[in-house]
Design a protein around this nucleic acid. Structure first.
Lengths: 132, 132
DNA sequence: TTATAAATGTTATATTATTACATAGTGTTA
DNA sequence: TAACACTATGTAATAATATAACATTTATAA
């Protein structure tokens, strides 16, 4: 069973914004968009983002310093994330591919390290940009 | 055949520093360390870093905003990078595993996107930190 | 209900990275 | 060599991203 997280006021405002945007959003763009709702300071945004990342409602796209709503309905795999990023239009989508996630979750090498998390970012041209 | 890149003065200074450090280094820590060699401004550091990343001599650890010397003697796979990161001591090492890189380089899904690059970061506890 | 944890509000500041513009060096080729 | 293109450098200013420190309030659970 998945734990139900009751989002706080700021968390809800910020999650809804990111979710509705349908793509990655940057922290200060989020800030700008929620100022009319009373969220005035960067820290308020970052705190909500931290929490949302922690509970898996959003993910951080590390190479872009941006945040995107989790697109896996289950929202259970925040410790195993994979994204495809178009280097032309900067469109990002989350990859949910069972084989890939199994392969990576079970990956082990000779280092003696046990991996508990991973983040994978693929880069290329999306269908639209390829055909331009 | 691999193209030989003759590093410029600043590029050489900065590459040598990162390489000798044996681990990831942050841009402003690099700056601090090379000031005695006449490199005074952030931009001088970032320009050298950009070039070194471009030619594959170093890689950026995106989740840490840090740069590490390429540990694959060949230095040919800057478009296909994988790292293991210890969340306790922040030790980073580059993973060179033929199976993994083949698997990821050939990965394709239904999105119609052709991936030309990827970056994978694994997180966990290294051997040392695990046994503490 | 009281104590504990989680979230909020606010100001200031730290860290990471780029823009803009001027100058100098390197390599090619006419 | 002279002219050109290209790469790299130097410098100042500033933009973009993120956190520290402290006070207060709200939610949760014992």
């Amino acid at each position: 069973m998945q734990k139900e997280h009751n989002l706080s006021k700021n968390q809800k405002i910020i999650f809804d914004l990111i979710d509705k945007s349908g793509g990655p959003m940057k922290a200060y763009s989020i800030l700008f968009n929620v100022q009319k709702k009373g969220i005035k300071a960067p820290l308020q945004v970052y705190r909500a983002l931290d929490k949302l990342v922690e509970i898996g409602k959003i993910h951080k796209i590390e190479s872009r310093n941006a945040f995107i709503a989790c697109q896996n309905s289950s929202c259970q795999i925040s410790k195993a994330t994979a994204f495809s990023i178009c280097e032309s239009c900067e469109d990002v989508s989350e990859i949910s591919n069972t084989k890939l996630s199994k392969y990576l979750s079970n990956f082990a090498d000779e280092s003696g390290m046990k991996y508990s998390k991973y983040n994978l970012e693929f880069f290329g041209l999306c269908k639209k940009c390829k055909s331009k």
